[in-house]
Amino acid sequence: MNDGTKPPEPSRRKFLNWLLGTSVGGLMLAMGFPVSRYLIPPEAAESATATVRLPFKPEEIPPNTAKIFKFGNRPGILVRTPAGELRAFSATCTHLACTVQYREELGHIWCACHNGHFDLTGQNIAGPPPRPLEAFVVNETADQIVVSKGA
């Protein structure tokens, strides 16, 4: 423009600058948005291969009760024994893969599908289950419980 040639019409030039500016900004947004969302850690804090942090606190589970939690795509069961100890097992019944539950009046784990019984060490004690429940390792701190697969 300073070399003496005819400058383009100002309105056209204005539009062009607007178009370039806006689309560059749009592109930045279109790339920046996914990237920033990508970097935000997802709710499930880790891939559930071997460890899961439970979504409830230790005080929410009184003695002689249990809670079912999600361990990968399968359920786990966290039991607080009448003595106050926390134990975790796979909640998948070893017979036909139903989800087991804790029976407070029996004081042990029970599968409703075929009346299978497991004691508080996960051993199959009655009914059709052929094997004990897989036991997990429980780590308890003041405000969280972490369950992991045994070594």
């Binding site: 996914p34 990237v35 969302r37 990508y38 935000i40 997802p42 709710e43 499930a44 880790e46 891939s47 559930a48 291969t49």
Partner: peptide, 13 residues
Amino acid sequence: ESIQFLMAEVEFG
């Protein structure tokens, strides 16, 4: 598993 996690849980993974 980490890629499965990336694809399913991470936004825009």
